[in-house]
Design a binder for these strands. Structure first.
Lengths: 334, 334
DNA sequence: CAGACTTAGCGAAACGATTAGCTATGGTGG
DNA sequence: CCACCATAGCTAATCGTTTCGCTAAGTCTG
């Protein structure tokens, strides 16, 4: 690879002049400018970002660490992030922490070492106080999940509202015996969505029957068996709120295996984070995370941090999920 | 951030010694080693990869440029690639050429500038001879699609075999009136798969009837209408080979809207590259690309190139798709 | 005990860019 | 006609590492 010195020699100018031409940072006479550009083309010179970044102290790299790349939800997030990052003139370095806190820690350390200008992190686990101690100087935006006490900016989604919106939709259709297949209660996405549903029902003086709220662990197979079980009871719910798309697929399959039709026999509403349910008929009625918006926002916040355009106090943004109506819900009519 | 000089000063040794300790590249007496390590911990020193890479002339970065990040197929590819790259001790820089040759070119130029040690590229468009001229020195593996005359290594999949395998499976079930919804004929994935099917049928002295081979443009909605049309005819096929998963979803929906059952009335086999059909029932019988294997292989080939472990002649690997049997095909029995 | 070997650790020169500060040139005003 | 000024372009320091070549102290050998 040609260096700036080769170009300087070929154009019979100094490296400073070449630099000035390349970066358009000082006036260079048309004549020299032309010579330099010719030499650049001739030698196929392309400035080394490594050297430039060493000197400038920035890397033009933004890191994204997601919790589980195999999950289509994060895949979509990655796609949005790539576009946003490129739009700001950075490049995206991608990491997968695979839900392992220890790996996340190593990734952060690598991000720091690589000299990335900032990081967007979908944090895993709960107890990563080390972020505060060791990585406080790395501009960071936490995406999807807030960690209390963490000094980073956060962009999250209102899970409570997701459950509430789905619940209200079912209630408005006249359902009163509403069940739910939830996520694990120890994670905020699992807990918040159920609480939203309960809140919506409580506002109308209702509550689910015992046994009509069960955890499907955010997994398709678990949801399948929970659904079979719950819907096999004589007093089965007329509508279900299912806390993610994966589980909705499992529940749908269970219904169809039991000879129950959706939406005629059972209405299903869900909060679809994964969008793996694209090919499913009937299409799910669901609340969706505004992934693209959230990602764009996270990156804007990050770039502002990097550019020091912003006060030190961490900012916390909460996005509202949107209700998308499919064909999986019907008014109660019997 | 602390530098190696700060550490050296704190430990009262030279920077060379610190470097030796950090990289374990020369013997250092236990005593000094301990002092250095203490200083490192004390100052939270983390060597700057930027500086190291400038000096070493490598970046520990591998670039991946895919043709369309929004496509779940590439999302899966990205996930595999991240894992493989991390396994080799590199980090992954991700780009999306969005099917635009001009953008791909800019991306390659950026990859070079960033100093990436190598690149895995899913090439878009056909006429990118510039790769040979301008980027011949960048170790590259082309993934998914070969470009004739390109000096890069390639890892591709045997589309002909995909069509042949699916065809033979249907033929073995006794089907003779087999139709196909194909991709566009101008791209190798579209053309190859159909040719494979035709070959399998020809080997048994069969050929599709006119009107039983139509293009669905690799799009769900186009496939829906093509399927409705084709299956509305009196002499409709008893089995369909559908050239990708997206179109299979559309065709399934068409069948169900027409009151035709799968597999009882029509058998469907597909080549599923996108795996968006995960939630579908019946599960598709399909040939699948061994994405993970292909990606792993591409990265191994790339790393070998980077390490110069390999002769100059480009290597071309062709993977075989695998037939995955679902419930969407039945023996012909009427 | 002197000379030849080892070897732990050091000093300083790279790597390839940016950029502060300087030089030399030519134009202008008094 | 001289002093001065503006400014195009150059020289060299710098960013934080790695690493080559060297020094000096210690160990052997005859």
């Amino acid at each position: 690879m040609a260096t700036i010195r080769d170009v300087a020699k070929a154009a019979r100018v100094s490296t400073a002049t070449v630099s000035a031409v390349v970066n358009d940072t000082a006036f260079v006479s048309p004549e020299l400018r032309a010579r330099v550009q010719a030499a650049i083309r001739e030698l196929r010179y392309s400035p080394s970002l490594v050297a430039r970044n060493l000197r400038r102290g920035r890397s033009q790299l933004i890191a994204l660490a997601v919790a589980d790349l195999a999950n289509p939800f994060y895949a979509r997030l990655v796609a949005s992030a790539e576009a946003a990052v490129a739009g700001w003139g950075y490049s995206l370095v991608l990491f997968n922490s695979d839900e392992k806190p220890e790996l996340e820690r190593r990734i952060l350390s690598r991000i720091r070492t690589l000299g990335c200008d900032g990081a967007v992190v979908v944090p895993v686990g709960a107890a990563n106080q080390y972020r505060q101690r060791e990585f406080a100087d790395l501009p960071t935006v936490l995406l999807g999940r807030a960690l209390e006490g963490d000094p980073a900016d956060t962009v999250t989604v209102d899970n409570l509202s997701a459950g509430r919106q789905a619940g209200n939709f079912l209630l408005d259709l006249g359902h009163t015996r509403i069940g739910s297949i939830t996520g694990p209660m120890q994670v905020s996405t699992g807990k918040g969505r159920l609480e939203g549903l309960l809140e919506a029902m409580a506002a109308r003086g209702l509550a689910p029957q015992p046994g009509h709220v069960r955890s499907g662990e955010f997994r398709e197979d678990a949801a399948y068996s929970v659904a079979r079980d719950m819907m096999g009871q004589p007093d089965r719910p007329t509508a279900l709120y299912i806390a993610n798309g994966m589980m909705a697929i499992g529940a749908m399959r269970a219904l169809s295996d039991m000879g129950l039709r959706c939406p005629e026999d059972v209405s299903i509403a869900s909060t679809d984070t994964i969008s793996g349910a694209g090919g499913m008929r009937p299409r799910l009625t669901r609340t969706e995370h505004p992934v693209a918006d959230m990602t764009d926002t996270a990156l804007r916040m990050l770039v502002e941090r990097i550019d020091n355009k912003v006060s030190d106090a961490p900012r916390h943004l909460v996005f509202q999920p949107a209700l998308v109506v499919g064909e999986s819900c019907a008014p109660i009519s019997r």
